[in-house]
Design a protein around this nucleic acid. Structure first.
Lengths: 202, 202
DNA sequence: ATATTAATCGGACCGCGGTCCGTTTAGCTT
DNA sequence: AAGCTAAACGGACCGCGGTCCGATTAATAT
């Protein structure tokens, strides 16, 4: 079973990787996880990472393209798991429940995901490019759009889906919880209220 | 006796400014507008600005605190005008119209404002700090919250207001129009649909 | 006028993400 | 085993936002 790739042309383009390249990629990912465990995501710099992994800085950028790309790679496993849950998993998140319940579950799950992975998600979405055009984002958008249609929304479900999803922006959620002190429950409730009214409103 | 100002060198700072400081601030703002007119917001760097204004780099940062602070200052006039419109101006944006209509008008006006000032607004909101804690953002939030209450929303109007406003994020709006090619009308319609359903929903 | 002082100034300096290009090397060919 | 070539390597280099601190200067007291 193969999922929609998280990075443009990475998993989908299985160009043979030279052995030293593969070895360095593993080294870098391991070193990155170590550094994050030790000092947190924010103090992970590309220089430090290169130093810890024993490779040159250029190698880091050739492997991951950018700091954002590295963060996306570090999250790709849990992101794939998240995708699997709402696409194939048990209801109400997965198929089998009514659209509205799935919408509510989707938001709750996303909020939990963002709070669990914290700064990592924020760093992975730190550019407009990575926020809106990464395959994962397009997948969520389609998912929410389909659920909206299923619930009978007629007017511009695509843009409404994008709008609803923008509400789950990691930066905003983390700020709400960590700086403003809102509880996860309140955020989840507001999402539930929002999608319920949007779906059954008018 | 000194206290922490709300904004670097802003309205709340009654401390008399030395004449050379005031002169340099004017020079810098003028130079900034020139550079933006010539090359766009994105290629305005703090070094170039200092060079054009004929001052040292340190002076730029003492005046405006950060690049974000400079952008906020550059926008402050039009931001004040925007605030005046929805607080004291004619309906439906200003007082006199029903809450829902004022909500719709608020979103439309904000979308127009963001698209008009483009990169400048984006640059002014480029940090979580400036996005959520700047006085202007708190004002919009209160405004929307009050309109929601006026329309009878009971459950958590504060958080619902913040959520709705997050939908008007400049980065998202600009990306939708400039990259994805959505029309202003579609964005405005979606906002209208959203707030209408939220207010009259359930 | 002169002295005092505190605000202001300016540019060297820092760490960051990201690029570039001469050097090295893995893996194939002969 | 030796040669070839394209890929991978690594670190010097760049421009950026932001900081720091000794030099300067405007405003005030004498």
């Amino acid at each position: 079973m193969s999922y929609i790739p998280l990075l443009p042309g990475s998993l989908a383009a299985p160009v043979a990787e030279r052995s030293d390249a593969a070895r360095n990629r593993e080294r870098l990912l391991e070193a990155a996880r170590e550094l994050i465990a030790e000092c947190g995501v924010d103090s992970l710099t590309m220089d430090r990472l290169a130093g810890r992994a024993g490779v040159g800085k250029g190698t880091v950028f050739r492997r991951f393209g950018s700091r954002t790309g590295l963060m996306i790679t570090l999250l790709s496993d849990s992101e794939a798991a998240f995708q699997a849950r709402f696409m194939f998993g048990p209801p109400p998140l997965g198929p089998g429940a009514p659209g509205l319940e799935r919408l509510i579950a989707f938001g709750s799950a996303r909020i939990a995901y963002v709070l669990e992975h914290g700064d990592l998600v924020r760093a992975a979405e730190s550019s407009a490019q990575s926020r809106y055009e990464v395959p994962a984002a397009l997948l969520w958008q389609r998912h929410v759009e389909i659920l909206l249609r299923e619930e009978g929304m007629e007017a511009d479900p695509l843009l409404m889906a994008m709008t609803l999803i923008s509400t789950l922006d990691p930066e905003r959620l983390l700020h709400a919880v960590r700086v403003q002190g809102f509880t996860t429950e309140r955020l989840t409730s507001t999402w539930r209220e929002l999608v319920t009214r949007v779906v059954s409103g008018r």
